[in-house]
């Protein structure tokens, strides 16, 4: 299951500006049904002010494709054509609080549709209207210009990232060499080098939207602020607290040494050597972790490194 942000879900479940715009004067269509996603963006641009007064979309695709389309329309309505042209796929992804790396191509599709629609409005030829043969990736109909835009805007440096952002190379893989050539050229122009594949897609994965796990119990206020002496006393105190319980079982526990995160104890009486001694150690460890608010390991004194 994808980890979509709340914002993505909001725009998927309740998309804004979905449908047909009857009086559109600029339309951009990208993608295709065989590729698995497609977007038709319709704009109503005021010819006097060049302001995008309305925008609608129709999308065939997954949750993030629909959310990206919806976000795109929200981002451009009310802006001038020139302002809109400065938007990148990054802006769409950021607006949504991030997209999973494998889904970044949905935001790229949004940006491509916007550029296509504006080109249509200006009566220009859209760079994506390439001739057969110019395509870098035939499976997904991706040309060098699109790869270049994705690489520049998103600071991509590996083949894998290019696939995540543009889909290029994600099927038969015969185009990998050509993609790497484009990547190298673009990076060389920026004075950079191609990275090894599998580098994490920095920053854009929406990690910021993932909340850190809430700690189960609040750590003691002293955690992190204890001096060495306080810490030692806390450990001794904790061991004293567990002793009666162990003594009840006919055994005993004794603190031998503290070596950073390793705390050495000696079990004696019924506990030593019995099959449950590992369990007793675990119990002591749990108690100490709880009292100290930090992770420590309790080990038998027999495991102490020589010379300690």
């Amino acid at each position: 299951m994808w980890n979509y942000t709340d914002k993505v879900k909001e725009h998927f479940f309740n998309p804004k500006n979905a449908g047909v715009l009857d009086d559109a004067n600029a339309v951009g269509e990208v993608g295709s049904i065989s590729c698995g996603d497609a977007l038709k963006l319709m704009l109503k641009v005021n010819p006097d002010t060049e302001v995008i007064e309305d925008a609608r979309f129709q999308t065939f695709g997954c949750g993030s494709a629909i959310a990206s389309s919806s976000a795109l329309t929200e981002l451009i309505i009310g802006r001038t054509v020139e302002e809109a042209l400065r938007l990148t796929n990054r802006d769409i992804a950021d607006y949504l609080g991030g997209l999973p790396p494998e889904k970044m191509h949905c935001s790229v599709m949004g940006a491509e549709a916007l550029h296509a629609a504006i080109a249509a409005y200006k009566g220009e030829e859209w760079a994506d209207d390439h001739e057969e043969g110019e395509l870098v990736c035939k499976c997904f109909g991706v040309d060098a210009a699109m790869i270049e835009r994705a690489v520049t805007v998103n600071n991509l440096s590996t083949l894998e990232e290019v696939t995540h952002y543009t889909k290029a190379g994600g099927s038969c893989q015969t185009c990998h060499e050509k993609i790497e050539e484009v990547l190298e050229t673009v990076l060389a122009r920026a004075g950079k080098e191609m990275g090894a594949s599998r580098a994490p897609a920095a920053g854009l994965v929406g990690l910021d939207a993932i909340k850190p796990l809430a700690p189960k119990a609040p750590a003691p206020a002293t955690a992190g602020k204890m001096t060495n002496v306080q810490r030692m006393q806390a450990i001794m105190l904790a061991i004293e607290e567990i002793r009666p319980q162990i003594q009840r079982d006919g055994g005993d526990v004794e603190l031998v040494d503290i070596d950073g995160k390793d705390i050495y104890v000696r079990l004696s009486g019924a506990c030593s050597g019995c099959s449950q001694s590992a369990g007793t150690m675990m119990g002591v460890q749990m108690k100490l972790v709880e009292k100290l608010g930090e992770f420590v390991r309790v080990k038998p004194a027999s495991l102490m490194p020589a010379g300690v």
Binding site: F13, G36, G63
Partner: peptide, 14 residues
């Protein structure tokens, strides 16, 4: 026809 599976699953999940 004409729709994508993940979108169907997300709505079913609702």
């Amino acid at each position: 026809e004409f729709i994508e599976g993940e979108a169907i699953l997300l709505l079913l999940n609702e």
